[in-house]
């Protein structure tokens, strides 16, 4: 969590889109920006890029107000996927309230996915977050491409971990909102345990997700 000011009734949360280079993290945020209603979200801020590759990060902020008056801001970030930007990844991952791991479904990318997931585990432990406590959602992106891992194989691999797995094509615009919603719900569960969203703030799991994920008219 970036900030919680109980007097000001303000809470700033952080979600991070993690994953190997070119798996579609920025495309996910672009699609969310397009698909979700203008009310309740800010504009996508894209920091300097090089050859269209993220070198710093992207930011898409969301806003909602709980019935108690608690103003919640959710800052959704992408990390740079390229191996050399590890220090930036750590800075972005710091104090994250939830992570969406965007994997590339193509068979050829299996090794990169695994290395990136290993990097996530290592960096989480460096910034002091336990992976078993962190709300984590997996997205297998690029389902529109040929030669991809079959769904059964993916489910078999990740089934035991209990992490929700969403299949998507960010390019075609499907599976993206579902991923975000799944992440919001997982994050809600963790926050509710700590800040009693339901009792103190009258904010249910359903309404938290609904307010974040409002489809554009």
């Amino acid at each position: 969590m970036i900030e919680y000011d109980s007097e000001e009734q303000r809470m700033v949360l952080k979600f991070v889109y993690y994953g190997p280079a070119l798996s579609g993290k920025t495309t996910n945020l672009l699609r969310l920006h397009d698909l979700l209603a203008k009310e309740g979200r800010g504009d996508l801020m894209v920091l300097d890029t090089k050859d269209d590759r993220t070198i710093f990060f992207d930011l898409l902020p969301f806003f909602l107000v709980a019935p108690s008056g608690l103003k919640i801001k959710v800052k959704v970030y992408t990390v740079p996927g390229q191996v050399q930007h590890d220090a930036t990844r750590k800075a972005v991952l710091q104090r994250a309230d939830g992570v969406a791991f965007i994997a590339d479904s193509r068979r050829s990318e299996a090794k990169n996915n695994a290395e990136s997931f290993g990097n996530l585990e290592r960096n989480l432990s460096i910034v002091g977050i336990g992976i078993d406590k962190l709300p984590l959602v997996l997205q297998y992106n690029k389902r529109d491409l040929p030669d991809i891992l079959p769904e059964e194989e993916i489910r078999r691999t990740w089934g035991a971990t209990g992490f929700p797995v969403v299949l998507s094509s960010a390019l075609e615009g499907w599976g993206v909102v579902e991923t975000f919603r799944a992440l919001a719900e997982r994050a809600y569960d963790a926050l509710d345990r700590r800040y009693d969203f339901t009792g103190t703030h009258g904010l249910t799991r359903g309404s938290f997700a609904e307010r974040l994920v409002r489809r554009a008219g």
């Binding site: 970036i2 900030e3 700033v12 952080k14 990060f57 800052k75 970030y77 750590k90 800075a91 972005v92 710091q94 104090r95 460096i126 910034v127």
Partner: peptide
Amino acid sequence: DSEGRRRIVYCVGEE
């Protein structure tokens, strides 16, 4: 870090 030294990590997202 791996050798137990305390290390402040810059946090992206400060308001």
